[in-house]
Design a binder for these strands. Sequence first.
DNA 1: CAAATATATGTAGTTGACTACATATATTTG
DNA 2: CAAATATATGTAGTCAACTACATATATTTG
Lengths: 162, 162
Amino acid sequence: MNVINELGVLAIATRLQRLAEQIRKDGLLIYKAHGLDFEPKWFPVIYTLHVKPVLSVVELSAEIGYSHPSTITLLKELETQKLIKSGKDKTDERKRLVQLTEKGQALITQMKPVWQVMIAASTQLTDTQNNLMKAMEEVEQQMELQSFYQRAKVIMAAKALS
Amino acid sequence: MNVINELGVLAIATRLQRLAEQIRKDGLLIYKAHGLDFEPKWFPVIYTLHVKPVLSVVELSAEIGYSHPSTITLLKELETQKLIKSGKDKTDERKRLVQLTEKGQALITQMKPVWQVMIAASTQLTDTQNNLMKAMEEVEQQMELQSFYQRAKVIMAAKALS
DNA sequence: CAAATATATGTAGTTGACTACATATATTTG
DNA sequence: CAAATATATGTAGTCAACTACATATATTTG
């Protein structure tokens, strides 16, 4: 077994990160080609608020699967873009309720056809023999079953016996 | 077609990044469990210098597939750990030649059995129905054939005709 | 009902990669 | 052979996520 395989596994994230960077850059270009001023990283927030119009920061974070500080950063950017607005929840003063502005809603209407194109293009990219999305999900499942560390421990124990 | 698919594609990198973070953390623990003071991110540099004992910074960057500034950062860390050493190339004063120290070589000997365990564990994790490594390679190939942006353009053009 | 605990938000600093730019040396070419 | 170009290295700053910690408000419990 070639030790470089281990490199391969540890390097997956780096490679995917690069791929993702490229996809984000192209995403930005695609929006621009349609005359739209929108960054791909804003999509999860905007789309979620489109589907669930009023959410607190933590609810939104949970929906998009990000940490709440990451979400707060995105919300700041979107607020300066005037695409979202927010205010205190009157029944629970801890909560800040976030929602789209009219400008945000109008932008979504313009973006919808672009999203369709993006979906078609990204499906072309990822729907190969080993589907990347499915592979991801499978590995996440494996990790949940047993972590990398736990697996290593079991393998070590087995080796010690033989 | 559900628009959230697009989120899925753009979110791949984030998810993979998290997975990679977890794997790195566990990797650190596995080294520690063996009494070794080594960070997973150092592996590409150390292993490459093990196979190709003397390399310049740019040669090394190319081997591990990182940008040269990223490589320089790793080399700095490894130099403070006294795992590598470096000096000017006498025939080409621009080049800095990098190599393992004795300490570095001794550490590799200690790490080799640990790498075997890591390879076995990570193979368990990623060798599922849709193999993650292969999926990655396939998507990289697709991107080389035609970028996300180009694909979107073609799809848009086709739409305009219909 | 006061104290302890839980929840919501926010700030600061970290991580591991990157790009853009600056500088030093080597090589090529008019 | 001097000027232009190419290569090698290094520095500074960016990016998109994170964790750890701090604070404010709400809820639960002895």
